[in-house]
């Protein structure tokens, strides 16, 4: 698992993937910070976290497209499948590598908090909670897109599928508000990742949301392992 983790992290930086991800995240993040905080002279970073969370929906597939679909496209998956490394270790190593790049992006965004701390008043507690929500939200999208990547034969397909599924997850939140049938609305709310983020962007630490995110990640990793294993047994 560590071999795969190390290789994936190195590979993100050997290629343009990590630079594109970090570049787009920090450019858009800085624009959001300028508009939300600097222009309005606001020290409240929670609104910024809510805006940054939408970036994961578009950027997460950039990190995950290569993980499974990329290996399949380059035929390197056979090297991994024929190695003694178990599938679970392989998937976990890849997932953690993508999360590492995401954490790096979040770490870079700490500069916004520093600017607020220097020129205004930073509410450390709610900022930390906001960052926790942002990281959990991003890691959940990576887990979802990793699973989606298992069904794609090329990196481009993985990106398109990933963004499509992410939009569906986002729309479930929008639909939940639009649907008048209570049960359907509740179900849509239940699968909505954005619903789970809302306590964090209000500065509240929600244990149930933390558990939900962690369970979501575990289930997606488990399903990814099953999806890869099912490919070996496929007779289609």
């Amino acid at each position: 698992m560590f071999a795969i983790y190390r290789r994936e992290v190195q590979s993100y930086f050997y290629t343009s993937a990590a630079y594109v991800f970090l570049g787009v995240f920090l450019t858009l993040g800085s624009i959001f910070f300028g508009v939300t905080n600097l222009a309005s002279r606001s020290g409240n970073l929670l609104a910024l976290f809510a805006e940054l969370s939408y970036l994961w929906m578009l950027l997460s597939p950039i990190l995950t497209m290569r993980l499974i679909a990329g290996e399949r496209q380059r035929n390197t998956d056979q090297m991994l499948f024929s190695s003694p490394c178990p599938l679970s270790g392989m998937v976990l190593g890849k997932y953690l590598a993508a999360c590492t790049v995401l954490l790096l992006a979040v770490a870079c965004s700490v500069m916004y908090a520093l600017v607020v701390a220097v020129y205004g008043k930073l509410y450390i507690g709610e900022t930390v909670v906001g960052y926790l929500g942002l990281v959990l939200h991003g890691c959940a999208f990576i887990a979802l897109d990793l699973f989606v990547s298992c069904f794609a034969k090329s990196q481009m397909t993985a990106v398109v599928l990933g963004i499509g599924v992410n939009l569906l997850v986002w729309m479930s939140d929008v639909l939940a508000r639009a649907v008048t049938i209570e049960r359907i609305s509740q179900a849509l709310n239940f699968i909505s990742l954005y619903q789970r983020l809302s306590p964090f962007v209000r500065g509240q630490l929600s244990l149930s949301s933390v558990v939900y995110y962690l369970l979501f990640i575990v289930v997606m990793i488990f399903l990814s392992v099953r999806a890869l294993d099912a490919r070996r047994w496929s007779e289609a």
Partner: peptide
């Protein structure tokens, strides 16, 4: 395998 499973960037 039939196509050498190599990573070009390494």
């Amino acid at each position: 395998p039939e196509a050498a499973p190599v990573y070009d960037e390494m």
